[in-house]
């Protein structure tokens, strides 16, 4: 299938997906070296969803993401070094070392965080959109969440409130088929997630989340519709997580065969192949990207290694606007 995009466009999509993949692969290594601790949720396999979606959003739009948000954060423009330093727990991390992998934030990029309570980010997104609507801003709030979040009451409440108050929220469900280790058909009564939003009067659509171009198009159409109508929309990005849920997951709930089957749809390998057969890019382009990214990641690690630990005396900072003690 022809891609119908420009060479530069193809190069950018590929570069962004490779940046995420390589950053995370390196994170796993650093995790085993105990440089990174806590939970580390990898996005590997899902890169097309994040890259396609983020590219369709404007710089001024708000982003609310989940604990599996390295990809969105990186594409949004948070430097790889700041993300890496945050995972190290260093003061030069994008959240000052207070958040870690699950809580990447950037005020100047309107990145309202990695949220690690499943479903908990949805009301926040609704509120951000409410603020924009009341202030007359043309901004859209894009809210990422997984299929597991659709089980939560806050999911249904947030859809209802956004529809009732006509708020400019784009709900982006990254359906990776599992709520942690519980398969979709074992955690929702109707595994066709797109059937939910129409019950609240919200237009809903499903897209192949392994196809970066398809995601970008679908998100572009949806986000511009939200901007135009100031009403919410819902997109399901069907994707698959190649790695374990987190670093503590023995993956007892799915077979190796199932994972291997899905790897045939690797969003990066497939896109490279299509872009090459469309003669948009060459192997040497890929080599260049890989070399650039390797350099970027090496510098990111250096930035994290160089970072300072926040002094323990500062532990009560950032609890209140002014220290109460």
């Amino acid at each position: 299938m022809t891609l119908y995009i420009s060479r530069d466009h193809a190069l950018d999509l590929l570069r962004q997906m490779i940046r995420i993949r390589r950053l995370e692969e390196k994170s796993v290594e650093l995790y085993s070296k105990q440089k990174i601790r806590g939970f580390l949720h990898l996005y590997i396999g899902e890169e097309a969803a994040g890259v396609g979606a983020m590219r369709a959003l404007r710089e001024d739009d708000n982003i609310v993401a989940t604990y599996r948000e390295h990809g969105q954060a990186l594409v949004r423009g948070i430097p790889a070094g700041e993300i890496m330093a945050e995972m190290y727990g260093k003061a030069n991390g994008c959240s000052g070392g207070r958040g870690g992998s699950m809580h990447l934030f950037s005020a100047k990029r309107r990145f309202y965080g990695g949220h690690a309570i499943v479903g908990g980010g949805l009301p926040i997104a609704v509120g951000l959109a409410l603020a924009d609507k009341m202030k007359g801003e043309a901004r859209v709030t894009a809210c990422f969440f997984g299929d597991g979040a659709t089980d939560e009451g806050e999911f249904h409440e947030s859809l209802n409130l956004a529809a009732l108050w006509k708020l400019p929220v784009l709900f982006l469900c990254e359906n990776n088929q599992y709520a942690m280790g519980t398969a979709l058909d074992r955690h929702v009564s109707d595994s066709d997630i797109v059937n939910n939003p129409p019950a609240y009067g919200i237009p809903s659509e499903s897209v192949n989340g392994m196809d970066v171009v398809a995601v970008e198009r679908a998100v572009h159409n949806a986000v511009e519709s939200v901007r135009e109508t100031s009403e919410p929309r819902f997109l399901e990005l069907r994707t698959y997580r190649f790695r374990a849920h987190s670093m503590y997951d023995a993956e007892l709930y799915r077979s190796k065969e199932e994972v291997e089957e899905h790897k045939k749809h690797d969003p990066i390998a497939n896109f490279q192949e299509r872009a090459m057969s469309d003669e948009l890019i060459t192997q040497s382009d890929i080599d260049t990207i890989e070399a650039d990214v390797a350099k970027e990641i090496a510098e990111a690690i250096e930035f994290a290694e160089r970072g300072e630990w926040e002094p323990v005396e500062d532990i009560t900072r950032h609890i209140y606007a002014r220290d109460l003690s």
């Binding site: 009301p123 509120g127 959109a129 009451g153 409130l161």
Partner: peptide, 28 residues
């Protein structure tokens, strides 16, 4: 009705929306 808003019965979500609106520069 813009500034005095009756909410649905969803404490978690309207408190959360208040938090979001506060993040967005309002004083809910």
């Amino acid at each position: 009705e813009e500034r005095v808003r009756d909410t649905p019965l969803c404490e978690s979500t309207f408190v959360g929306a208040g938090i979001g609106a506060a993040l967005g520069g309002m004083r809910p």
